[in-house]
């Protein structure tokens, strides 16, 4: 909710988001039982990211909040990706030979 001008989100939106989240949970479980090879983790994580985005935007009101909040989140995710990418860079390239 944007500070100050309390933005009231309609419960209809909450219920819609809730139903979408439940549907995605069903889909991701169903997909886990199929063998898509390399795509299994990709599908699961894409769904997880979508679900997380919905929670952030609607349940956590970021859609209606000052841009600064989105910036703070982006900043956190950026540094998280630095931690992941640079650490993995070491492990993945250990077997390479100069």
């Amino acid at each position: 909710m944007s500070a100050g001008g309390d933005h009231i989100v309609s419960p209809k939106i909450y219920v819609t988001i809730w139903l979408i989240l439940l549907a995605f949970t069903g889909i991701t479980v169903a997909a886990a039982y199929q063998n898509f090879g390399i795509f299994n983790p990709i599908i699961a994580l894409t769904i997880a990211c979508t679900k997380a985005t919905l929670v952030i935007l609607f349940f956590m009101h970021v859609k209606y909040s000052p841009k600064m909040i989105a910036l703070v989140i982006g900043c956190g995710l950026f540094f998280l990706s630095i931690l992941m990418v640079l650490t993995c860079a070491d492990y993945l390239s250990r077997a390479w030979i100069m």
């Binding site: 886990a32 898509f36 994580l45 349940f59």
Partner: peptide, 26 residues
Amino acid sequence: GLYWHFVDIIWIFLFPLLYLVSRSPV
């Protein structure tokens, strides 16, 4: 509420990573 939703989001990622993605060997 923000805290509670955040904890929910963590689970949204834990669930596929721990339970789902390794079911089919790559």
